[in-house]
Design a protein around this nucleic acid. Structure first.
Lengths: 149, 149
DNA sequence: TATGGTTGGACAACCTGGTTGACTACTTTG
DNA sequence: CAAAGTAGTCAACCAGGTTGTCCAACCATA
């Protein structure tokens, strides 16, 4: 039997490919995973480019490129920070929120299909088990590990 | 709760980081995941560069680069194909087999720690569940999806 | 058995998503 | 109020892939 990380990677790819294909079928431009992470992050909080880089675990320069793309495509916009003249808050536009909502629905469809294929109990155990493991290794704090230069 | 693919990715990264760190601690050069895939593939069969690319899901050119590295570092060697003068079989050296053995032990250590953290039953269910899901989406054949130009 | 299509491998140019490094403008702190 | 730290940008570079092209060898078939 393959070691768990290989199973994780293969499952991730299998689900990701399906996600991608269905977005394309519907004619929605398939953004990259990092964009999804950003949307999900911005949904819950106001954040600067540096915050986003921190969360993604990449440098602020890399984060800036991603934000610039999303801005250009109309998914986010940058507004001046109320108190810090250097900084900008990045916020989701309506287009961004709609995309996220759509993607979330699609993810739950795919999760549903997975649950159907392997059994709801098994599915639930997987989800809870992985979450518990992450809790165990990371404690409370989110992954963002690497320094943000 | 995060959608399953995010959990998969985060767990993958968490385990991978630990794997990487421990290899470094021991002073073994940490190869990239792709190299591990190649070792595991070569353990079971004799294969050409094209076969490897097929299995990794990358172009034969990309596969050739990886094989060239592994050759240079002494983990594999290329021998003439017995019947096809164009082709070469790529085979693991002793160094390659030792590395794989060591890595496999490390993986099972990490799996053991995961099982301890979340419970053996849960761990077993995750492993079997993911395997079942992959079986369901891919059928018998391994992932190698993209065309090998 | 000659021939035309296919395949393994190599070389080169290029693309993408990241990195480091340096710099400016602003903020925070001692 | 000076010194250290931080948000953001620009630019150069790097790694790991991609296309595109080619040659030599293979294979099917007429």
């Amino acid at each position: 039997m393959d070691p768990v990380p290989m199973l994780l990677a293969m499952t991730y790819r299998a689900m990701g490919d399906q996600f991608h294909d269905r977005l394309r079928q519907i004619g929605l431009e398939p953004l990259r995973p990092a964009h999804g992470y950003v949307f999900r992050f911005l949904k819950a909080r106001r954040a600067t480019t540096v915050d986003i880089g921190q969360h993604l675990g990449v440098t602020k320069q890399a984060a800036a490129k991603i934000v610039a793309e999303l801005d250009e495509w109309g998914y986010v916009l940058r507004e001046p920070h109320p108190t810090d003249k250097r900084a900008q808050y990045v916020t989701l536009t309506t287009k961004g929120r709609d995309y996220l909502k759509f993607a979330d629905n699609l993810w739950s469809d795919l999760e549903g299909e997975m649950a159907e294929a392997i059994g709801q109990d098994t599915f639930d155990t997987i989800k809870a088990g992985l979450a518990a493991y992450l809790q165990h290794v990371h404690g409370e704090d989110q992954p963002g590990l690497r320094p943000v230069w």
